[in-house]
Design a binder for these strands. Sequence first.
DNA 1: ATGACTGTTCAAAAAATATTGAACAGTCGG
DNA 2: CCGACTGTTCAATATTTTTTGAACAGTCAT
Lengths: 175, 175
Amino acid sequence: MALHLEARPSRLPSAPPLAGLSPLETEAVELFVGLAQVVGLPKSIGQIYGLLYISATPLSLDDITRRLDISKGSASQGLKFLRTTGAVRLGDENGSRCDRYQAETGLRTLATGFLKEQIEPRLSNGSDRLARLKRLAEMVPAEQREHVGQRVKQLESWHGRAATVLPLLIRLLGK
Amino acid sequence: MALHLEARPSRLPSAPPLAGLSPLETEAVELFVGLAQVVGLPKSIGQIYGLLYISATPLSLDDITRRLDISKGSASQGLKFLRTTGAVRLGDENGSRCDRYQAETGLRTLATGFLKEQIEPRLSNGSDRLARLKRLAEMVPAEQREHVGQRVKQLESWHGRAATVLPLLIRLLGK
DNA sequence: ATGACTGTTCAAAAAATATTGAACAGTCGG
DNA sequence: CCGACTGTTCAATATTTTTTGAACAGTCAT
């Protein structure tokens, strides 16, 4: 993710061309590019989702590459991610021969998919580390025994807190 | 942030040297490097915080560069970030002539600092975009009027939801 | 004032990540 | 079966982000 260790005048991404889009669409796409950056996803994914979100009709991969002016590869990968994450699905009224996508707009759906795919795996990885840390903490010189024990206990409490708060958070995001 | 669009065998960061550290410290550092990655911060920041977190005594910038084997520049910038974010503070028992740091360990403190510094600015940026989007939505061809209006309304509801949930979340992280 | 030490800054280098584009596999209609 | 079309994959490339290291500023003891 972009981290602003830098000076104050935090540079804006300096709006790219975004050729085939109406002003409304451009604005929507930029909005979602910003959101994507907040949660650490690539720009192209924000663009794709933003375009689908504002579009009144389902769009094909080809529509997307043309309007957004990105490569077929990017669009394909981006859609794949959005699909497996549940943020996008095949259009309802799908008549034509090629796949058309539309945005899934339930906040809970989006959040759940994102947490499941992006956060959960890393956290469970963290669990392993925590377990190993705990073992190591037991064989520490007496001098540090107390301090280290305290820290490990705290980490465990964090872990527990996270485990209860995350589901609750999803509930809060409501239907 | 690292995004795994890629194949299944999601490569692990392949543990670096981490010379001057005890096994316990190494484990703690790696744990926090992982956490840092989850929230999209550079590795060096995770390393620094992890080392301070597990250390029984406050450490100087020089201690940090030597033990972690990172450059003075990285350490200085990382500490700066951790300071302004409230994750680290000057040691209590500060006798010597150089600054020594220790980790701030309140979960709420950490979360608040992070949200304030990293998330809030981006979200307020998003507010501007949303306002502009709303204006554009009013001048849309009749055909799309309904759809676009619905989407804009939904975005506003998301925004409201976020505004209520974030503070609540901080409360949940407790004391 | 000088030299040793601590810490910051920032341009350049390195590393990590995202995007492209071309090769490929699959499908459909004729 | 062929050729046109849709979509995926992945190595090469481009871009972004992080890290380094050297120059610099400040402090302090002598």
